[in-house]
């Protein structure tokens, strides 16, 4: 089971339809099951049968999760693969010692692969859909896999299966979500 975490301002909001359900559709197409959980309802631990966690994006104006990052402390205690998308990548950054600042991109953008990884399309670059008002400075020791002209686009923790992408792979880059699912047991 893949746990889809919604960092939006409220559980089951219109943001869920836009940022969680499209990811769920890719998970289903990969013949896996998923469960929805709003970040405020997770508590200290994620469900035992979780094989992978995807922290999804939020609406452009929704940055309330940035002031509630302690709600994601369970991330530090898990060895289960985690993919953070947009807001999810910002959460990973803050949880592991990186920083988040201003930096907006909206629409299709050229993303340059600087460190090839099976998670991403092959180098040199690919087009990706962006929808963010903040950007990330990755945690110390994390690797930057890809960048756009504006900011860091993909990161990974070299010691744990934790990945962040700033673009929205559920739009025209399903392969990124599929590659992540390949890394999850089950």
């Amino acid at each position: 089971m893949i746990l889809l975490v919604d960092p939006a301002f409220r559980a089951g909001s219109l943001s869920m339809d836009e940022f969680v359900l499209p990811v769920g559709r890719i998970v289903e197409r990969s013949e896996r099951t998923w469960r929805y959980r709003h970040y405020a309802d997770i508590g200290r631990e994620i469900p035992e049968e979780t094989e992978g966690v995807i922290i999804c994006g939020t609406a452009l104006k929704d940055n309330s999760f940035l002031s509630a990052v302690d709600r994601f402390d369970w991330l530090k205690a898990t060895e289960i693969p985690v993919l953070g998308i947009c807001a999810g990548m910002q959460v990973l950054c803050l949880a592991f010692g990186g920083t988040v600042g201003e930096g907006s991109e909206i629409g299709m953008t050229e993303v340059h692969v600087i460190l090839p990884h099976p998670l991403l399309p092959p180098p040199p670059s690919f087009q990706a859909y962006e929808l963010h008002s903040h950007s990330c400075e990755p945690p110390p020791a994390w690797e930057t896999l890809a960048v756009s002209s504006a900011c860091v686009q993909a990161i990974r923790d070299p010691h744990h299966p934790r990945y962040g992408v700033m673009f929205h792979p559920e739009v025209r880059n399903d392969c990124v979500v599929e590659a992540f699912l390949e890394m999850c047991v089950g």
Binding site: E18, P22, R25, A59, L60
Partner: peptide, 13 residues
């Protein structure tokens, strides 16, 4: 974004 309005697309993908 320019008008500082929320934007929702509940049928997206």
């Amino acid at each position: 974004h320019d008008l500082d309005l929320w934007c929702f697309n509940p049928l997206w993908y």
